[in-house]
Nucleic acid binder design. Structure first.
Length: 534
RNA sequence: GGGCUCGUAGCUCAGUCAGGCAGAGCGUCUGGCUUUUAACCAGACGGCCUAGGGUUCAAAUCCCUACGAGCUCGCCA
C-alpha cells in the first residue's frame, strides 16, 4: 500500500501508544539546569515532553507533566558571561548564589524566570519544581537513606554498568558545607538514619553535620533514579548525552531497578539542534540563540513547529536568517490549508501555543511592507488595508510587525533588506538619459495630480509605453524625440525608481510601494535624480 | 578505541518501526494573472534512496559489511 502523508502517524502518537501499553497513568518529566541562559536547544527537551504529554492526554491517558529545575546543582565554573567575583561561588548550589543582575532571588532564578515566561508563551504549562525545594522539603530523604545504606551496592552497579570504578571515599551523597557553602568539596564521614543527618569533612577545613533535608544532594547518577521513584516519573525525554551505553540513563535504569525497586521511565532520546553552519548549539562555544530572542522574531507556534515536525532522534538544522522565512512560510501554508490531511492537522494541533492570534498577512510579505513603511505602524496599517488584507485584528498585525522588525534587525540577510534613502543615492549617477526623462516627467505629472492609489501608480508607469499617453509624450518632449519613434521598456523605468529611492536595481512591488511614500518626497527625489550629474 | 544516531532531489526533510509504482516544501525554469518587478496561480525540470553483499515474488524500508557525517563515553547532566 502506498503511504500518503495522511497515513503517517506523528511520532508523539507513536510514543504515546507505546507508553500506553504499560498503563493508563503517566507522569512526563523534564528537567534543565539553570546554570546559564536557556537556549532553543534546551527548548527541544521541554517541547518534546509537552507533545508527548498532549498525545497521552488525547488518547485518554491520565497524564501529568512536570518540569524540575535543577537549582541545587553546583556552579561548575565562572562562565564567560559572569564576572570574576563569581569565582568564590564555584561549587555552591545555584539556588544559594546571588543573582547576577540583583533583581532575582538567586542565581538560578535569574535564568529560570525568563525561561518560565517563555514556556508560558509556548503554551507549555508543566507543574514546576525546584530541586533545592524538593530536597529541603524532604522528598529525597528516603532515597538518601537508601543510598547511604546501600552505598557499596550502588558503587558496584555503577562500576558494572558504566565501567568506571568509583573512588575509595566515594559517596552517593554530597553535603553542603556549613562554612564555605560548597557541595563539591565535602566528604561523607558518617550518618544517622534516625536523626536524618549526615556527617562530613570539607576541604575548607570544616567538619560538621547536615540535615538530609536540604543539607546536601545526591550525586547526579543517583539523584536521577531517586527522583523517578519519589515523583513517579514514567516518561522522560533527555539529550543523547545521557543515552550512550554506560551513560546516566543506563546506570539510572539499573539503580532504579536494583536499589529503588522502580521501573525506569520510558526514554525519549533527542538530538541536538544545530545552528546554521556553526554546529551544535552550546553555551560554552557561544553558538547560542536564546528562546526569548526567538520569540521576538517568530510566533511561538512556529518554534513549536520547528521542533515537533522532526522526530526527536534526528538533529534539527536551524538558521534564523533566510531559512527561517521558509519555516514560517511552511507553517503558514499548512496552517491555512482548506482541507488538511490528518498528519497536517496533527502538526498544527501539536504546534498550538497559547492564545496566539493569526493574520492573513504572510511573514515574508510583511518584511517588505514593514520596510516600505520605514517601520511606522500607522503607515504599515495603511499599506495593509490598501493591499486588501483584513485589518480587524490590529493587535495581531502589530505582533507580526514587531516580529518582522526584530527579524530584520537581528537576523535578516542583506539582500532581504532595503531602506528608503534619506538622501539621493549616488547610484543615481548611472541613470540613462531616457530614465532621467522618465523621472522628471513622472515628477511633473505627480505634481499635478491628487492622491494616487497603488494601482494608479502602477498603471501610470506602464502608460509610458503607450505613445498616446501624457507620460509618454512628456518623456519624448524632454528627450527631444518623436513620440511615435520612442520605445519604452517598463523594466528600465522600475529600475530608475528603485535606484533613485533605494539605491538598488530592484525592490518591492512598485505601485503600492510608491503609494506608501509621501508624494512630495517622490516628486523632489525624482527631480533630483533626473538632474544629478556629478 | 567502545557506543549511539544519521546518510533519500540543488537545499530542508517526509517515507524505514509494520517490505508493495520514489514523495513534499523551498529553490530553479516555463507559462498565467488585460502591463516580468521579492505577491498570487498552474506546469515542468530535478534521484545509482552513500556503497557493496544477503533475505524475499517484491527492499529506500529487514540482515551483514564498508564509507561518510554528527554526537557521546573522566561522579562531569
Amino acid at each position: 500500500m502506498v503511504k500518503r502523508m495522511a497515513d503517517i502517524t506523528h511520532w508523539a502518537d507513536v510514543v504515546a501508544d507505546e507508553v500506553l501499553q504499560k498503563g493508563k497513568k503517566h507522569l512526563v518529566a523534564t528537567g534543565i539546569t539553570p546554570s546559564g541562559h536557556i537556549h532553543i536547544g534546551n527548548m527541544r527537551e521541554v517541547v518534546t515532553a509537552d507533545v508527548a504529554y498532549r498525545a497521552l492526554l488525547d488518547k485518554g491517558a491520565q497524564a501529568e507533566f512536570i518540569y524540575i529545575a535543577d537549582t541545587y546543582d553546583p556552579l561548575r565554573k565562572v562562565y564567560p558571561f559572569l564576572d570574576e567575583s563569581y569565582a568564590q561561588h564555584v561549587g555552591k548550589p545555584l539556588s544559594e548564589i546571588p543573582c547576577p543582575c540583583g533583581e532575582h532571588k538567586s542565581y538560578s532564578e535569574h535564568f529560570l524566570e525568563p525561561f518560565l515566561v517563555a514556556l508560558e508563551h509556548l503554551g507549555i504549562r508543566p507543574r514546576v519544581y525546584r530541586a533545592d525545594e524538593l530536597y529541603k522539603q524532604g522528598l529525597y530523604t528516603d532515597a538518601i537513606k537508601t543510598a547511604l545504606v546501600k552505598k557499596d551496592e550502588i558503587a558496584a552497579i555503577l562500576q558494572k554498568v558504566s565501567g568506571k570504578t568509583p573512588a575509595e571515599d566515594w559517596s552517593p551523597y554530597n553535603p553542603v558545607c556549613n562554612v564555605c557553602g560548597k557541595i563539591n568539596t565535602t566528604h561523607v564521614t558518617g550518618f544517622d538514619l534516625d536523626a536524618e543527618t549526615v556527617d562530613y569533612t570539607c576541604s575548607c577545613g570544616d567538619q560538621g553535620t547536615v540535615s538530609m533535608k536540604g543539607g546536601g544532594k545526591l550525586t547526579w547518577r543517583v539523584d536521577w533514579p531517586a527522583r523517578w521513584k519519589a515523583l513517579g516519573v514514567t516518561v522522560e525525554p533527555f539529550g543523547k548525552d545521557h543515552a550512550s551505553r554506560g551513560g546516566s540513563y543506563d546506570t539510572g535504569r539499573a539503580l532504579a531497578k536494583e536499589i529503588f525497586e522502580y521501573e525506569a521511565p520510558f526514554p525519549i532520546v533527542y538530538e541536538w539542534i544545530m545552528l546554521g553552519k556553526e554546529g551544535a548549539m552550546s553555551s560554552s562555544t557561544g553558538v547560542v540563540v536564546s528562546i526569548s530572542d526567538m520569540l521576538k522574531v517568530v510566533p511561538p507556534e512556529v518554534l513549536r513547529y520547528l521542533i515537533i515536525r522532526t522526530k526527536p532522534e534526528k538533529h534539527i538544522k536551524f538558521d534564523p536568517a533566510q531559512p527561517l522565512l521558509n519555516l514560517v512560510d511552511e507553517f503558514e501554508r499548512i496552517h491555512s490549508m482548506d482541507e488538511p490531511g490528518s498528519y497536517e492537522s496533527r502538526l498544527i494541533g501539536l504546534s498550538h501555543a497559547a492564545g496566539i492570534c493569526h493574520t492573513d498577512i504572510p511573514f515574508k510579505h510583511m518584511t517588505t511592507i514593514y520596510q516600505a513603511a520605514g517601520g511606522d505602524f500607522d503607515r504599515i496599517m495603511n499599506i495593509v488595508s490598501r493591499s486588501g488584507y483584513n485589518t480587524d485584528n490590529e493587535k495581531c498585525i502589530k505582533e507580526l510587525a514587531d516580529n518582522v522588525g526584530n527579524w530584520l534587525e537581528m537576523y535578516a540577510p542583506p539582500f532581504a533588506k532595503f531602506s528608503v534613502k534619506g538622501e539621493l543615492p549616488v547610484q543615481a549617477a548611472s541613470l540613462s538619459d531616457a530614465q532621467r526623462a522618465f523621472l522628471s516627467s513622472f515628477a511633473d505629472i505627480l505634481a499635478g495630480s491628487g492622491e494616487l492609489s497603488g494601482e494608479d501608480y502602477h498603471n501610470m508607469i506602464y502608460s509610458a509605453k503607450d505613445p498616446g499617453s501624457e507620460l509618454h509624450i512628456m518623456m519624448a518632449n524632454t528627450s527631444g524625440v518623436d513620440p511615435v519613434e520612442m520605445t519604452v521598456e517598463p523594466k528600465d523605468l522600475f529600475k530608475a525608481i528603485y535606484t533613485s529611492v533605494l539605491g538598488q536595481q530592484s525592490g518591492p512591488k512598485a505601485g503600492w510601494f510608491l503609494s506608501s511614500l509621501e508624494k512630495d518626497f517622490l516628486i523632489e527625489r525624482f527631480r533630483k535624480a533626473a538632474n544629478y550629474r556629478p
